[in-house]
Amino acid sequence: MKRLLNTKLFIAVIFFCIGFFTNHLLTKVRGAPMIATNDERFPVDIDDFDHTSMMDTINRLSKERAEARASAMGDVSKREDDDNVYYDIPQKTINGVEHRLNVEVKDGMIKISEDQKSSGDTLVETSSERMFSIDPGLDGDKAEVINEKDKIVIKIPKK
């Protein structure tokens, strides 16, 4: 048994040496593999791209994203009378579920946020937030938030 094990080990060492030297000789004959520089790998010319088309796509995607964000929060409309400015924020109803908004007026900013949980087969939680500044001629400290049936009205008196 010992003799058989020594024979198998000897044959394995021989095959390893033959493989190693064959690989070494082939590398010498073919030469070492060349490593390409960046210029040789991907010759790219800046004029190969259609810049107008790329910018159109970027602008279109940005616009779609902004519209989706605005429609999720509702479009805020502004109206005024002699004494006050009013911001109307519509409350959306999607699939029969009313989306409740949280409105906060603080430090010259109006912050509209929404936290929503919808449960069906799986629980989905979403949140969004939108902020914009109050016009300089308004008194934000005396702002009122009025909840109506289908919208939230922010009433801010003029200074």
Rank of each mutant, 00 (worst) to 15 (best):
V85T: 07
I94N: 06
S119L: 04
A68E: 09
K106A: 09
A72D: 10
P43A: 01
Y87E: 00
E67V: 09
S53L: 15
A143K: 00
I152Q: 03
V29Y: 10
D83E: 15
Q116R: 13
F20D: 01
R3K: 15
R3G: 05
D115R: 13
D56A: 13
N147K: 15
E148G: 01
V29P: 01
A68K: 12
I46H: 13
A12W: 03
L9R: 10
K159V: 10
D135H: 07
S62D: 15
S127R: 13
T122H: 13
G120Q: 07
P136R: 08
P33F: 01
I11P: 05
F49T: 05
D82A: 14
F15K: 05
E104D: 13
D47A: 12
M73H: 02
D47V: 12
N95P: 08
I18N: 02
I11L: 06
D81P: 05
E148A: 01
T22R: 08
I110G: 02
V85R: 02
I112Q: 00
P157C: 03
L61M: 10
I11W: 06
C17R: 08
L4C: 11
S77W: 13
P136W: 08
I134D: 00
I146L: 07
N23D: 01
I14V: 05
S128D: 08
F49D: 03
I35H: 10
E40Y: 08
L4H: 14
P43D: 00
V124T: 11
F15G: 06
E125Q: 15
K8W: 08
F16K: 10
K159T: 04
V153G: 02
E129G: 09
T52S: 07
D56H: 08
M1V: 15
E104W: 07
V13I: 12
S127D: 04
F49W: 03
E67I: 07
R30A: 04
E129R: 09
M55E: 10
F15R: 07
I152S: 02
K117E: 15
L26G: 02
G74F: 00
P136Q: 04
E104K: 14
D115E: 07
I156D: 02
Q116A: 09
F16N: 10
R65N: 15
V13H: 07
K149C: 06
G31A: 00
R100T: 08
G31H: 01
I154A: 02
R65T: 15
V97E: 14
A66R: 10
F42M: 09
M55A: 10
D88H: 05
K142S: 06
N84W: 06
V105H: 06
G108R: 03
T93E: 06
R79N: 13
F21D: 03
S119A: 09
I58A: 13
I134P: 00
L123C: 05
H51S: 14
A143R: 03
D107V: 04
G120C: 04
L101H: 02
R60C: 09
E80P: 02
T126C: 12
M1H: 13
G96W: 01
D150R: 07
E98I: 14
L26F: 06
N23E: 05
I154S: 00
R100W: 11
E104A: 11
D141I: 11
I146P: 08
E144Q: 03
G140Q: 04
D56S: 09
P33S: 00
L101S: 02
N38S: 14
D107F: 01
F21G: 05
R65S: 14
R60P: 08
D83I: 10
I112N: 03
